[in-house]
Design a protein around this nucleic acid. Structure first.
Lengths: 158, 158
DNA sequence: GGCGCCGGCTAACAGTGTTATCCGACGAGT
DNA sequence: ACTCGTCGGATAACACTGTTAGCCGGCGCC
């Protein structure tokens, strides 16, 4: 808190005039990042580009991604829709969309934690996962009807 | 550190006679938990029971699981083998084994973080994921040859 | 009998999030 | 024009964190 305040040219306790505590501040930052992520994912048209976009966005902002997925930062239920939405639009099945999200999230987690060695093996794991999902029964883009409007997260940063 | 020391009937600084710092202590605890996890997973004979065992073990020890997967706790490279080994024994393909591990890990992460609502939807996502992996090309148990001996983690807790 | 190591202890430090309290600026209302 | 409340700064201080420095008793070994 002190170092953030310093960066703002402010004293640390003044931050508490804007956020109740550190957790609320983190939740606001995480929500903003989630909105970014949702916007970036919305452009994907295939499972592979979607997975690639998810991965590259997370690796480009590892600290924000950690913040977003930290258990101690509660987000709203609506936020799940932001993350799952793009996956649903492509795999066309809610349960499989969640599974796909979990796969992508798990891959990123393991990569960021250094649990999977970098190199071609990582790409092979991504390819194996996306291939399995693509070949899955119930897979395919949402067939008809208007897609739900993208969800916009209103974050509390002023 | 103070509260752990109190539980041991000891003063906090005395802990530093056994571990260099908090991170090293956490790594030792995480390694012990990883060994537990590996032992529990080793008994699984199908993809579904393996996934169920992974999930239930993680949910039974959420704090230890968090510790294990925390980026700030470095484990040895060998540790990946403990986690991936049981998956490899069942899906029979290293890349797919890693992807399966990532899927299971991601599901657990999302569940622990409350990012997926509890209820039947969670089970549906698990089912969708395991079905996709099972139906994947290259799937199947390791066909022949002796299986590698299970890896034993030696953790530094004395 | 001395020596060294092991594992406990106390005191203390720097850094953390956070609270209580104060105070000047500013806009609205009478 | 004066007052008054709110907003957003400031300072001082608190409890708690991981961690270090240094002291010391007991035990095994040459």
């Amino acid at each position: 808190m002190r170092s953030l305040a310093r960066e703002l040219g402010i004293q640390a306790p003044s931050l508490y005039k804007h956020f109740r505590d550190k957790q609320e501040l983190e939740a606001a930052v995480a929500a903003a990042f989630l909105a970014d992520l949702g916007a970036e994912l919305a452009g994907a048209r295939s499972l592979e580009t979607l997975a690639g976009a998810y991965r590259s966005h997370a690796l480009r902002h590892p600290h924000l991604y950690r913040l977003l997925t930290d258990r101690s930062v509660p987000l709203l239920e609506r936020d799940e829709a932001v993350a799952v939405g793009p996956f649903l639009a492509i795999v066309g099945n809610l349960a499989l969309a969640r599974a796909t999200w979990a796969f992508a999230h798990g891959m990123v987690e393991l990569e960021l934690a250094g649990r999977l060695e970098p190199g071609g093996e990582l790409e092979a794991a991504w390819a194996a996962g996306t291939a399995a999902i693509r070949a899955s029964p119930g897979q395919g883009p949402v067939p008809a009807g208007p897609r739900p409007a993208p969800v916009v997260v209103r974050h509390g940063i002023d």
